[in-house]
Amino acid sequence: MKRARVNAGILIGAALLLIWCLLPIVWIASLSFKPVEETATGSPQFLPKTWTWDNFSSVFQNDDFQRALINSFGISIIATVLSVALATLCAYAIARLQFRGKRLVLTIALAIAMFPVVSLIGPLFDLWRTLGLFDTWPGLVIPYMSFTLPLAIWTLTAFFREIPWEMEQAAQVDGATSWQAFRKVIVPLAAPGVFTAAILTFFFAWNDFVFGISLTSTTNARPVPAQLAFFVGPDQFNPPVSTLAAAAVMVTIPVIIIVLLFQRKIVAGLTAGAVKG
């Protein structure tokens, strides 16, 4: 009897969870299928009255948006690969080696993770102009790396601590150097953790807005979140709701695919070592 009630509670909870998480997604998808007239003043119905693909075709025809998509993918992937590579080295050292200043490194990573990004954009704009990095891919890759490294380092350190290091020692006993032991034995074992860190890092870079609007000015490097402000509607003074929604759906699809494929890994990554001392 009691058991059944608890189960019912869980069931209701699960239903609410699904509604809460998916309703806005359904909403934005629904908007993306509405004809422009239905998104004008005084049309508050949830689902489209008539369905249309027009919004998607106008997004597809928008060259600037396509450039932004390429920018976002390119910059996020480069930043992810570089960041995870550096983080892997760093996390290995932290999880495995004894050295002075380990606490300092962890504190720096934590401090960066907490850093208010807006504090930087003024000086960074000047610096990037001087170095010729303004409105270029590297100009975004570098800050994305800085801000995703802490996340990647924390996640990877947690993963690395689970690895049976005896195997590495065994390899060293067999005559391998620290570096060989790392490369031959540990890298394959660490790959799943690295992969998880990569997904989380990619999400961060994909999501960024502040750097995107401050450090770019043309479609050379402008990423998708910043490009969304450039859609022109039926009048020039308001965003075109349905076109924007179609663009939003398109940039959400990669997220959904990644989540569908890798949900187990992402959950593991987000929860790994979060509470274990």
Partner: peptide
């Protein structure tokens, strides 16, 4: 960074 910049 400089290398990347010169590339671009």
């Amino acid at each position: 960074a400089a290398a990347l910049a010169s590339l671009s």
